[in-house]
């Protein structure tokens, strides 16, 4: 692990918070590829064979990180991307460019550690290209402060090439959200497969916006986008899932489940399906409402109280 000189303390603080929240000790492991950003500084970098990481910080504070993975590279241990902010207020702007070659197999574990801030705007823009026959998994987990002062915007544009597979899991279920705006726009080539899953737990006056777009441009491409929001108290949540069937035998499914608990909750979902090829097939499922009565009563008939049953169901949905 290359800890950037002068930033040892920030590195250690971020890693300590991460380890406390996840019990995962791999960030200090020298055989694990890692990118650790604190505020507008790259404080730790570690690469592995076949993977190249370049970082640059512009004068205006924008942190630019390029990740390139060579063709035929298999990275057996997940690559960790850790972004944190240790000041009380401010803005963090990040730009990631991923260029992933053909026949690559890699898993990214991204964590946003924003537990110590009072007011922060965290903006992350990513572009990712996934080469032919590659298999890429991206798991993104957020830890925010409990006073709701974090505003996270994460905008991702991707291209998934022929026969490649991409799966994404975006989870903000363990801490307060604050305000979050997630946009993911993916283009799929022939036989490409994508599976997007986002789960968010809104509390108090959290504001949640999710937009997921699947552009099924390749023949026989397929994509699934599933969003689950558990909205409590005065949470406002708005989810848009879009799928475009633009090629023969393209198949897309979008699903949004918003479960509400609280009289001041405001949630909505808009599914958009557009078929531009007669052989494409798109489906969607959406539900907005309370926890299903038959689920509650099934568990209550086993001795759980209504609150215990609701917690059991929600924990499952957000797991």
């Amino acid at each position: 692990m290359d800890i950037v000189k002068g930033y040892e303390e920030e590195f250690n603080q971020l890693v300590d918070i991460y380890e406390k929240n996840t019990e995962d000790k791999s960030l200090r492991n020298p055989s694990v590829a890692t990118i650790i950003v604190s505020g507008n500084k790259v404080v730790g970098l570690n690469s592995v064979k076949g993977m190249y990481i370049n970082s640059k910080v512009r004068n205006d504070g924008l942190v630019m990180i390029d990740v390139e993975i060579e063709d035929n590279t298999v990275i057996p241990i997940p690559v960790h991307l850790c972004t944190g902010f240790l000041e009380k207020t401010g803005e963090q702007i990040l730009k990631f460019n991923y260029n992933i070659g053909s026949n690559v197999r890699v898993k990214f574990k991204s964590h946003c550690i924003l537990t110590k801030v009072e007011k922060l705007h965290h903006y992350m823009e990513s572009e990712m290209y996934i080469g032919k026959n590659s298999h890429v998994v991206y798991e993104d987990e957020h830890f925010h402060d409990e006073n709701g002062g974090v505003f996270v915007e994460t905008i991702t544009k991707m291209k998934v090439d022929e026969n490649a597979y991409f799966a994404s899991k975006f989870y903000e279920t363990k801490t307060r959200v604050g305000r979050i705006n997630v946009v993911m726009d993916i283009e799929l080539k022939d036989n490409a497969k994508v599976n997007l899953e986002s789960k968010i737990y809104g509390q108090k006056d959290d504001i949640i916006d999710i937009k997921e777009v699947l552009r099924l441009n390749g023949e026989n491409s397929s994509g699934i986008a599933t969003s689950t929001v558990f909205a409590t108290d005065s949470t406002k949540a708005h989810v848009i899932n879009e799928a475009y069937g633009n090629a023969p035998y393209a198949r897309g499914h979008i699903e949004c489940n918003e479960i509400v608990k609280g009289s001041n909750v405001s949630v909505s979902t808009i599914p958009v399906l557009k078929v531009n090829n007669e052989k494409a097939e798109l489906t969607h499922e959406a539900s907005v409402g309370r926890i299903k009565q038959d689920q509650l009563e099934t568990l209550m008939s086993k001795g759980l109280t209504e609150d215990e049953a609701a917690e059991f169901i929600v924990n499952g949905l957000l797991s």
Binding site: K292, Q295, T298, S301, K302, G316
Partner: peptide, 28 residues
């Protein structure tokens, strides 16, 4: 009595069409 209270007194129901639960394993 509520469902829960009846269950705690030892009454249970094998549902004709049991509900499904996402994210819950058989063990859980």
């Amino acid at each position: 009595l509520s469902i829960t209270e009846r269950a705690k007194k030892g009454i249970a129901l094998l549902w004709q069409e049991p509900a499904r639960f996402e994210g819950i394993t058989v063990k859980n």
